[in-house]
Every structure is written in C-alpha cells, then in structure tokens.
Amino acid sequence: MNETEFSLLNILIAVIGGAIRVGTPFLFVSLGECLTERSGRINLGLEGTLMMGAMTGYGASYLSGSPWLGVMAAGMTGVILGGVHALLCQQQKVNDIAVGIALMLLGTGLAFFLGKPLIQPTAAHLPSLHLGSWSDSPVIQAALDINVLFVIGVLLAPAMAWFFRYSRWGLYVRTVGESADAARAMGLNVNRVRMYSTMAGGFLAGVGGSFLSLYYPGGWSEGLSSGQGLMAVALVIFARWNPVYCLYASLLFGAAATLGPTLQSIGMTWGYYLFHAAPYVLTLIIMITTSSSTRLLSGMPGQLSNVK
C-alpha cells in the first residue's frame, strides 16, 4: 500500500456508486417479486425472466438501435413469462415454486440458445445522467453517473407502496394475497388479479435484465447473471414485502457485493474469497435475526403462508 493514497470519503463514494450500479437489477427484480408475492404467489422463475430480458433487450437494442426499445422488449418478454407462470399456477395441484424453478430453467435455456448470435455484436447502451458534473473529482463524477433506470426504480418503490396502500387495484392485490376466500366474497376474480400481478412483476424483472445487458456490466453473455433473480426473492423477504424496503435491501446488497473489489483495489488483499460470500452471509444473518417461528412475519401476505 506504499503509494496508494486514499481518502475514506472516496471509498465511501465509490461503494455508494457501486451499490447503485450493482443494486439496480436487484431493485427491479425485487419490486417485481414484491408485487407478485403480495398477490399470494411466489415466482422463483424471475431468474429466467431476468436472463430472457437481458437477451431480448440486447437483441432489440441491437436491431433497432434504440436502447429504450430494448427495455420495452425486455419488459414484454417478462410479461409473457409471467403470464405462463400464472397460467400454470392457477391449475389445480400445481405448485408455484416448482413452476418457478421450471421457468428459471426454460428462461435461462432459451436465453442462451437464442442469444448465441448476440455475444459478439455491440448494441446501443442506455444513457446515464451525469449528476456529478459539479465536482472535479473523477470518483464522484463516476459514482454519480446514474442510469435513468435507477432513477425510475427509486421513484417506482414509493409509488408501489402508495399503490398498495391507497389505490383500488392495490387493495385488490392485497386482498387476494391476504385471503383468497375474502377476495372471492368481495366478488374479485382471484386468478385474474394474480395473473396481472405476476405479469406486471415479470415486466419489472425483464426490465431489470435489460439493465444488465444494456448498461451494467453491459453486453450479452452467458455469465451475465450471477443469481440476481433468485437473490431478489430473498431480498423481498427481508424487505418484509414493502417496496420501499426493497429499495434499501437492494442497495445494501449491492454495496456488500462491491465491498470485495473495492477493498482489493485499495490494497486490502486478505480473504477475498470470503468477501465474495459477504452479501449472502449478510442476507442470511438478517433473515435469521429478524424471523421468528412463533409469529408470521409482519407484512407477509397471508396466502403465502402455505408455501412459506
């Protein structure tokens, strides 16, 4: 560490910047999963949706030249996969976790299969907002180079919280998630509400995938996802099914994931293999300390308890 002069502030800013970059796909997938779970279903297939979103988003951006068309294409792919999930789950005796695992496999497989010709080409990437241009420090400039999708995600989290709380449709979703019987008594079509929720959740997960291929790390490759889609399901649980907490959880997880590389880059060289496990250990510890066997988790939709 002889000549590496570093200021604590710079590291902090770098970690925050990393948290935003790494956390954004988690944010979108966990918001999508949050919506789906609030309606009473778990969709483990979002990992497959994420990969399909990343692939179609990249492909659409490459073919059309517009990254935003890519984002839309990714979202629509997510809608289709969400629809398949919902359609299968509403059949009798079909377990939603199993369907999720199947869609994860199929989504990943299809993305790898159809994405072969997309590994080489370079597609138009999403633009970012240079919020750090006031500063001379390249570190701050880089950290505040924030993608528009992140901004949308940040606005979406409280908007979704508001939606659950105050809107009529939000009430439907919550009711269906709390008690299907009560919802039926109110005259709601339980399957339809769940289908829309899963499709909308799929849309968000698909958009999260497009962030991976169209912004960060950028490009399409088979190693693009390191389980973000699965981890987002865990994040929803420790975010207590609250969209705003999903935002915090995603950022925290993103920060934990950037800690390893950041510490190495300033010369902290010991134990990087263990640091790679930090996000997972952190999540597990939080889950263990905040769960309880005697009461249901606060915020947990009642209909999830039978699959919990």
Binding site: V84, L88, Q91, Q92, K93, V94, N95, A98, V99, I101, A102, L103, L105, L106, G107, T108, G109, L110, A111, F112, F113, K116
Partner: peptide
C-alpha cells in the same frame, strides 16, 4: 448450442408440471 439440452429439460419440466392437474 449447448443450451438446447437446457431448453429440452425446461420444456419437459413445465409440461410435467402442467400434467399434474
């Protein structure tokens, strides 16, 4: 591509699950 076997496995899995009903 190598992923064809993943696709086949995924299709089998989904159809088997759908057949549960």
């Amino acid at each position: 591509p190598d992923a064809s076997s993943l696709v086949l496995q995924g299709i089998i899995f989904i159809v088997i699950l759908a057949s549960e009903t």
